[in-house]
Simulated assay, not measured.
Amino acid sequence: MTSKRSLPRRAAAVAAACTAALVLAACGGGDDGSAGHDTHGGSSPSASASASASASASKGRHNAADIAFAQGMIPHHRQALEMAELAPGRAKSAEVKKLAEAIEKAQDPEIRTLSGWLTTWGEDVPAEGTTDHSSTHGAAGMMTAEDMEELRKASGSAFDTAFMEMMIEHHEGAVAMAETERADGSYAPAKKMAGQIISSQTAEIDRMNELLGKN
């Protein structure tokens, strides 16, 4: 009798143990799966999103358009300064001399700023005196070597007229470059400078057209 009673008890104990094992396995499986899911679905996507955001932020600092703007505007400004530096000794009009002075005052610091950006970005800064006037004529309103020689030889009223006509074309090129930067660039300080160039040089174009009797 004792043996018969112990068999059901052992069977019940085994059944209970199996049930407990199944419950633990199910719970354990859920925990492991949940933990795995949290690790994969929580940390990894979060880390991935963070890395992606960092990459986007890095790209947002500057892009190819910003580099092109800086590298193009430096020689462009240098030529404008070259033209403006002729005015004190050749211009007749006080207005032309005043315009030339304003151009120097605005564009010389911009060249230094643009050069600083390129250096920070690890990009080449256009070397001094390397502008090929002949090949760049028409590009962004650049003057040819012949244009520059004509301006150097002129004086008085003839210089005033040539200076303003050439500088209008030159400014129009700068404004077009700045508009491209505003549209395509991503570096906020460069876009801000572009806006200032558009504003100041458009005003100077209007003033020169007025002095030439074209307004």
Rank of each mutant, 00 (worst) to 15 (best):
P189F: 09
Q107T: 02
A183S: 10
S135T: 12
P45W: 08
S157L: 08
I67A: 10
G156T: 11
E210A: 14
G30T: 11
A64Y: 05
E95M: 03
N209Y: 00
K4P: 03
H133C: 12
M208Y: 04
G213P: 02
E172F: 00
A176F: 00
K97L: 08
Q79P: 02
A12H: 06
I197F: 03
E110G: 09
E82I: 01
A140V: 08
M166L: 15
R207Q: 14
S199T: 11
E149Q: 15
A16L: 15
K59F: 12
L7H: 05
K92W: 01
R112F: 01
S200E: 09
M143Q: 12
V14G: 01
A65G: 04
A70K: 03
A140E: 06
T39C: 10
M167G: 12
G33E: 03
K59L: 15
I111S: 09
K4Q: 13
A194L: 12
M1L: 09
I111R: 05
A100G: 05
Q196D: 15
H137E: 14
E146N: 05
H171C: 11
T144N: 04
N215Q: 11
G36Y: 12
G156Q: 07
I103T: 05
D147A: 07
H170C: 11
A64G: 00
P45V: 10
A183W: 02
M73A: 13
F163C: 06
E95L: 03
A70F: 02
W117R: 07
A127P: 02
P109E: 09
A178S: 14
D31Y: 15
K153E: 13
E179F: 06
G156V: 12
L22H: 02
T119Q: 14
R5E: 11
A21F: 11
G122W: 07
H137G: 05
